[in-house]
Design a protein around this nucleic acid. Structure first.
Lengths: 187, 187
DNA sequence: ACAAACATGTAATAAGTTACATGATTGG
DNA sequence: CCAATCATGTAACTTATTACATGTTTGT
């Protein structure tokens, strides 16, 4: 995963390992973290595989290694990006978001198709959970297993929001209409 | 994590490694998966640490190892369960749910406190994201970085649902009032 | 002067997955 | 009889984290 994220982050601008860490924090820090202990070794491997090249830049005594994506690197990245979002992706770990983050680099038709597939997978899964929940309707079961059941309802709520989000961004609707009113909102 | 989940799963009933796998699938399979390649070694370590004991049961030529939690195991489990849900927990990976799943074993006051803390952390985070989103309001930025921005809105939506869920289950309200109407719902 | 940020990296460890390897029992 | 399920485990590998180790430059 990190290898693709690095390729995406330097897709149209050269950067150092240190820079990449900051790009990740600023860009997808909400749902993905990477430490130097993983970034530097990954950069090394990407170099060995010929997906990036490195140029040393010296500013006085301070050294800096700038990484540039190669044509093969771009190809590999775009291939990964075009692949469908697998059902496990986004299921718990939000790694589907890392993919979507880079969707501005993909043709609109591809994006639409992947988002539709992802939405359908989520809908299928939601249907299953909605049926499951019906097994836990009696008051005595809800009393004894309240919190166990609550995790099921959490899953349902998150799936519903995910589906709503998919439908919304598939249509590239303006975000001002996205947020639910109610709760805390700063307008 | 898996060590605690196993302790929780056999907290009040003895089970085999095979059983545990099924309990996990049935119970928290929505947001957590475990393979035999992690379950059996973990069971071995728990035995070495004295948190579980094992008894061999032979049914004909078929052997089965039944694991029972020890007093120390129960103590360690309840200690873990009582700890606050850390902010990273639930942030991307939904491991907070594994904790909540076992909350029926905890005094109501403890549960209420942990859920309140967790809700507050989420609220703080939500406030930060709501401010962040204001930096991306101009139409040309939304055109160029639509999908990047979409991940921010996803985060906001999920946080809002998480907070709503926290408030709801903190009050132990009946689930019939939880689900949002609209979208696909089977009633 | 000193803290924060810039900058790169390694070693030990953690926590798991996947594929392999083996065999018994049950239900149709 | 044969597929599915029951039942346990190991070996190689993946992917990351944490702590360590080192040194520079900028801003106050």
């Amino acid at each position: 995963m990190l290898n693709y994220i690095i390729l995406g982050m330097i897709f149209d601008c050269t950067a150092s390992g240190y820079d990449i860490k900051k790009y990740i924090e600023k860009g997808i820090g909400i749902f993905y973290k990477a430490s130097y202990g993983s970034i530097y070794p990954t950069l090394k491997k990407l170099t060995e595989d010929g997906l990036v090249t490195v140029t040393k830049e010296e500013q006085g005594a301070r050294q800096k290694k700038l990484y540039t994506i190669t044509a093969e690197g771009q190809q590999i990245f775009l291939k990964w990006l075009s692949e469908p979002i697998s059902p496990e992706e986004g299921n718990g770990n939000n790694s589907h978001l890392a993919r979507v983050y880079f969707y501005d680099k993909l043709p609109y038709e591809t994006v639409k198709q992947q988002l539709l597939d992802y939405e359908l997978n989520n809908t299928t899964y939601l249907r299953k959970l909605l049926l499951l929940k019906d097994n836990f309707q009696s008051p005595d079961i809800q009393g004894k297993y309240y919190y166990k059941i609550s995790t099921l309802y959490y899953g349902i709520a998150i799936l519903q929001e995910t589906i709503r989000w998919c439908q919304f961004i598939r249509g590239r609707e303006p975000f001002e209409n996205f947020l639910n009113k109610g709760g805390l909102n700063n307008e």
